[in-house]
């Protein structure tokens, strides 16, 4: 059976199965377990209503538990074992990691990524959002800058491979160097700075995301505050930095953290562009080097990423709890 047919069949079975589950679970609950009739009708309705939320939640909780909660513990547990998974080595994998200079490079580079990419993307996004806010063709401009969001990291990397190509007839960077009389060079092999050339790709993708959200936040600023500032004689620059920015600070933080989390997970760009060579390794791509070869090491790297993400996660949860209350 061709995979596509298999896929369509899976959709039918999956969707049918879900609907079947939800419908029949409800039916059984209301008709047989706690029927709303007989001497205990009232109590049964209450009981059924207490159980029902869990029926609705069950499939999602199973899937989340299996694919996201269990792996946190499963990965940590696995990272305490050796390559084959047979011997308990305690924190041996972690000790090895920190002894490996490539891992330290990856950690250092990841810190660079975390510092540079969210800051640049948020700044550029804010800039574009503010500039396009008053333009008649602003929506078209935003749409075009937003477009890279739809492109895969692999596709984006290929697009930038053309930009960075060594041949001055292909790479626009080297074409410009050629015009001013410099010899061509491979941006991917320029030590240290090559990391920044790779970051440009992710900034190119994420600026649109930051722009869309910040643009909506700018629109949401109450007119009166801006008008009051104008009456008081504030300059546009003052209005932007003293009136608008403080009011959208919350959104800026959300955008910033969202991109930070993304930066810690994206391995595609480094994998496609340099394969982690020339000192451009980052944690996710470093992990893929050990995936399938040394699961103990790979899960240890994954857990290091988890620990870096943890503060953001806790902050998110605290925010969410505040809101629900």
């Amino acid at each position: 059976m061709s995979p596509l047919l298999q896929g369509i069949l899976t959709v039918i079975i999956g969707v049918g199965g879900c609907i079947g589950y939800f419908w029949s679970a409800n039916f059984v609950l209301d008709r047989f377990i706690f029927p709303a009739k007989g001497p205990e009708a009232g109590r049964n309705i209450n009981r059924a209503n207490a159980v029902r939320p869990w029926l609705f939640l069950l499939p999602a909780m199973l899937a989340l538990g299996l694919y996201l909660v269990y792996p946190v513990f499963g990965s940590f547990w696995r990272s305490l074992f050796n390559r084959a998974g047979t011997d308990f080595v305690g924190f041996g994998n972690y000790a090895q990691l920190f002894g490996d200079s490539e891992f330290r490079t990856a950690l250092f580079n990841n810190m660079l990524w975390v510092l540079v990419v969210p800051a640049s993307a948020t700044f550029l996004g804010l800039l574009v959002a503010q500039l396009t806010d008053r333009l008649s063709w602003g929506n078209i401009a935003k749409s075009l800058i937003f477009m890279p969001m739809a492109i895969s990291f692999v596709g984006a990397s290929l697009i930038w491979k053309f930009v960075y190509a060594v041949d001055p007839e292909i790479g626009i960077i080297n074409a410009m160097r050629d015009i001013i009389g410099l010899s061509p060079l491979d941006p991917m092999q320029v030590g240290f700075w090559n990391n920044f050339f790779l970051m440009v790709i992710l900034i190119w993708i994420q600026t649109g995301f930051a722009m869309v959200i910040l643009s909506a936040a700018l629109r949401g600023i109450p007119e009166e505050t801006v008008e009051a500032a104008i009456i008081d004689g504030a300059t546009p620059v003052q209005i932007f930095f003293r009136i608008k920015i403080p009011q959208i600070m919350g959104t800026i933080v959300v955008v910033w953290t969202t991109i930070t989390i993304l930066v810690l997970k994206v391995f595609d760009i480094v994998y496609t562009m340099t394969g982690g060579n020339f000192g451009t390794q980052i944690l996710p791509s470093y992990m893929m080097e050990y995936m399938f070869r040394d699961d103990g090491r790979a899960t240890a790297v994954a857990f290091v990423i988890m620990i870096i993400v943890l503060p953001v996660m806790i902050w998110n949860i605290v925010q969410a709890r505040k809101e629900v209350r």
Binding site: Y67, P71, R78, M291, A302, I305, V309, M313, N316
Partner: peptide, 12 residues
């Protein structure tokens, strides 16, 4: 769970 890195899930 929104921010749990996928990397954790791969091996297990």
């Amino acid at each position: 769970l929104l921010v749990v890195p996928l990397q954790l899930a791969l091996v297990p």
